[in-house]
Write a protein that binds this DNA or RNA. Structure first.
Lengths: 104, 104
DNA sequence: TACAATACTTCGTGATACGATGTATGCATA
DNA sequence: TATGCATACATCGTATCACGAAGTATTGTA
């Protein structure tokens, strides 16, 4: 997929990956893998940003001797997903324009 | 619309705006206005990039004493629009994942 | 004689994805 | 026991991008 378009959905994908249950970096990558390939550097950059924007909270734990950070979505994060619905509708409108060369 | 998502469609929108007939900056803004607001600085940046990427060609003219640059889409530009179709399909897949929390 | 509309240009800034690289542990297997 | 792979997170630097601000110049209009 085109890099720029990708940028528009990565954030929300990560939020969606932790919406139903808390998860951690490595698992998020595996879970998203079938729908969207994503490197570690990219994911951790996004997770950091999402935390700064209060879209998720972090809890550090230790599992089998390894550090593991669990991410939990916040109300603001859930709202972000909802807003994406509207954006997707706009996207479809613009898509129609692009394909048919005319609006609606 | 979210800035990042916007970035993913701006290029293709501009290409779509000149697909059926050559056009110039000021007119492109007016034409796209109903579907997508777009400032001059943004558009001219995009047009320059599209030219550098050989997605369009430019022909300078003078109309009523004012400089007017006509942009003409190339084969590569048309291909870009076609590729966007595939990207849009992927987008829809990812959208389903985000909304339903599951693939397919 | 102002002011709006037309038309294009340049500069600087803040976001962003991502490759490269690094650190550290547990586990299988040769 | 040594090697390599999977797990797990972190940081740095770079390229790309949209966009506001500001500027230049002409035509038409109130």
């Amino acid at each position: 997929m085109d890099t720029q378009l990708r940028k528009g959905i990565l954030d929300v994908c990560v939020l969606a990956a932790i919406r139903n249950e808390d998860s951690y970096g490595y698992k998020i990558i595996k879970d998203l893998n079938s729908i969207l390939e994503l490197s570690e550097s990219t994911l951790y950059t996004i997770l950091k940003r999402l935390e700064e924007n209060n879209m998720l909270t972090v809890k550090s734990t230790t599992y089998a001797g390894r550090t593991r950070k669990y991410y939990h979505i916040t109300e603001i994060g859930l709202n972000r997903i909802e807003e994406f619905k509207n954006d997707a509708q706009e996207f479809v409108k613009v898509y129609s324009f692009i394909m048919k060369g005319k609006e609606q």
